[in-house]
């Protein structure tokens, strides 16, 4: 269907979008990934998860990372977060090489990972206290963040008493409370139902608007990427590599109404094309020969 429509080029940008990207590029580079290499297993026989990945991210950019499964998107952000070590290349945050996890890179995981033994408020206080804040300072700060994500009423609840969307909001508050330079999100809304997910995406944009944070957001949902991102990093498989770093032509502020705008559809088509190249012909060839009777529409 998409191919039959007359769509603009996804690289065409409306003047306000182009101006926004110019402004973004003037901002300092906050995260710089240079010639990143990651091999699992022995050196020669090992599986190459990432090969020569280089990206620059500007301050307060919203980057979405997409790609087919096995393209190494999780590996990439785990290295940026310091949870995995690269076998080659480097990751610079504000010009300094990262080594190991740290408070300057907050992370939100798909599985919530709230500490079940702590109340909501104490979960948010955790990072602050790790950073050396006193109980009362951390508490005041945590209250502000809970207020921000709209969960003040639940500060004394335990995580198991919250719904999935609420847990993820606590996780976001917990990560942001540390005042990180970048917020890394690994398919954070993947486990949520479609409706909550849309709600959460809108929440995230509203929060991002108020906080000076750069976001690196992994997803496999093209609509999510198109709705959230400034730029979309498309990774490919075998070995994991950068296929394209697409500037999102959809103007901000974004809304669901844009899902049928020409820019949106052009972007979506481009994403489909780079992620599933020639899927149809390949699939058709591989279809096994199965005896099927053509029953038509009739049922007796």
């Amino acid at each position: 269907m998409l191919s039959e429509l007359k769509l603009p080029d996804y690289r065409e940008q409306a003047p306000e979008v182009a101006a926004r990207f110019r402004r973004i590029k003037e901002r300092p580079i906050i995260l710089s990934v240079r010639r990143l290499q990651k091999t699992f297993g022995a050196d020669d026989a090992g599986h190459v998860a990432l090969s020569d990945v280089s990206i620059d991210v500007h301050r307060r950019e919203f980057i979405c990372v997409i790609g087919p499964s096995g393209c190494g998107k999780s590996t990439l952000i785990r290295i940026v977060a310091g949870l995995d070590e690269a076998t080659g290349g480097e990751v610079l945050l504000d010009g300094h090489e990262v080594c190991g996890p740290g408070r300057d890179r907050g992370m939100v995981f798909q599985g919530y990972t709230l500490f079940p033994w702590l109340t909501v408020k104490r979960n948010v206080m955790f990072g602050l206290q790790m950073g050396g804040d006193s109980h009362s300072t951390a508490e005041a700060e945590a209250r502000q963040w809970l207020d921000m994500v709209g969960l003040s009423k639940f500060e004394d609840s335990y995580p198991h008493e919250l719904s999935g969307g609420m847990k993820q909001r606590v996780a976001i508050a917990r990560a942001l409370a540390n005042n990180p330079r970048i917020l890394i999100m690994d398919e954070p809304f993947g486990a949520l139902d479609a409706q909550t997910r849309c709600q959460m995406q809108a929440y995230l944009l509203q929060i991002w608007k108020k906080v000076d944070v750069t976001i690196l957001f992994i997803t496999h949902d093209l609509d999510e990427a198109a709705y959230l991102a400034d730029r979309i990093l498309v990774l490919g498989t075998n070995p994991g590599r950068v296929v394209e770093f697409i500037e999102n032509p959809v103007p901000r502020p974004r809304s669901a109404a844009q899902f049928i705008s020409p820019e949106y559809l052009a972007l979506k088509k481009r994403l489909e094309d780079v992620i599933h190249p020639q899927v149809e012909s390949a699939e058709e060839e591989k279809l096994p020969m199965v005896k099927l009777t053509d029953a038509g529409d009739e049922v007796e």
């Binding site: 994500v149 008493e161 919250l162 609420m166 709600q199 929440y203 509203q206």
Partner: peptide
């Protein structure tokens, strides 16, 4: 289980 409350982002100090 609490019902998800309406989201009303308020300006935080870090804004």
């Amino acid at each position: 289980r609490a019902w998800m409350p309406a989201f009303d982002p308020k300006p935080a100090s870090v804004a």
